[in-house]
């Protein structure tokens, strides 16, 4: 024991002697260590919980890996939400030639995520690039950029980029500074300015970072590529709700996307090549994971003022 103690005390003395420099070094090493610690603790919370197994054995497990009768804990959900699904890179294709502003995608999304009518994870916009060009409808979810300006500016790692592509938000960590709203060129984010719509109904529910329910006052809410659905192998809420075959969703690694309406699975590369696929505001370098197919053969009449909600919900 004494032998082991000696180098430690001498090191402590050494630090004391170094004084100021040592404090600095400590801060630096703390930063480095926290990084190292993060990597090693990704699957662990460090908090141990005692549980009784089926054969009456007392076992100690990490709180993060514990699930109670099929219902995962908040920590488990948060960790799962940050890890994503291995070997996948989700992409969405939006065929503008098919959208006729049915707004079923928006309704399904707002219902699933317990949003108010004016809170959009996805919104359909009436677009017209210039005076003489054809007007068209453009569904606009979060673009889930590979170089997301919103994530760069987050001070607390509340919003984050997942290894499989989606940009998510952890409402249990968000401080509500709204820097991400300011930084997003696509205006894709929304904020809970007042008590969420289902605040009472959702009381006591475990927060699922992949569904963003319950919504929390004073935090950001945003499109999640329906991470909870894709985990179950189902297409996102908006994609499956579309009656017009606007959306395709799939895995870039598989080079395949599935249409939400027709359920037809096609090759991603071919779809983009044949139809002149593009991404929004490519010049900003945000590298979106949402592709658009151009609004060719626009035949639907364009409403003059849309059924814009004028009153606050």
């Amino acid at each position: 024991m004494e032998d082991k103690e000696k180098p430690k005390t001498s090191r402590r003395k050494f630090l004391e002697n170094l004084g100021l420099l040592g404090t600095g070094a400590l801060a630096a090493s703390a930063a480095v260590y926290s990084g190292y610690h993060y990597e090693h603790s990704k699957n662990k919370t460090g908090r141990k919980i005692k549980v009784l197994t089926a054969d009456n054995q007392l076992a100690e497990v990490d709180a993060g890996s514990l699930t109670i009768s099929g219902k995962p804990t908040l920590t488990a959900l948060q960790m799962r939400g940050r890890e994503g699904i291995k070997h996948r890179r989700w992409v969405m294709i939006i065929d503008l030639s098919k959208c006729r502003n049915a707004r079923k995608c928006i309704a399904a999304c707002q219902e699933a995520h317990h949003l108010r009518p004016e809170q959009y994870h996805i919104n359909t916009l009436q677009m017209q690039e210039s005076e003489k060009t054809a007007p068209f409808f453009m569904p606009k979810p979060c673009q889930h950029c590979d170089n997301p300006p919103c994530v760069s500016v987050c001070p607390v790692d509340a919003t984050f980029k997942r290894p499989d592509g989606p940009v998510l938000i952890d409402n249990e960590r968000c401080i509500g500074c709204r820097f991400c709203i300011a930084a997003c060129p696509y205006s894709a984010r929304s904020f809970n300015w007042i008590e969420p719509k289902f605040a009472n109904q959702d009381k006591g529910k475990t927060y699922d970072v992949e569904l963003n329910v319950p919504q929390k006052k004073g935090t950001i809410t945003k499109c999640l590529f329906s991470s909870d659905r894709i985990r179950e192998g189902k297409l996102p809420y908006c994609v499956s709700a579309c009656p017009n075959g606007v959306y395709y969703f799939g895995d870039e690694n598989e080079d395949a996307v599935t249409n939400g309406t027709t359920k037809e699975t096609v090759r991603l590369s071919k779809l983009l090549r044949d139809n002149g696929g593009y991404r929004l505001m490519e010049e900003l370098g945000t590298k979106p994971r949402v592709y658009y197919l151009p609004p060719k053969n626009r035949l639907f009449p364009f409403p003059e003022e849309g059924n814009i909600i004028e009153k606050e919900g």
């Binding site: 994503g84 890179r89 994530v151 984050f160 997942r162």
Partner: peptide, 19 residues
């Protein structure tokens, strides 16, 4: 054969602090 690394592999402004 497809073995693409996770999108969060490189060091970047948008990545977690230790990256």
């Amino acid at each position: 054969i497809v073995d693409k690394p996770p999108l969060t592999l490189p060091r970047a402004m948008w990545n977690v602090v230790w990256k």
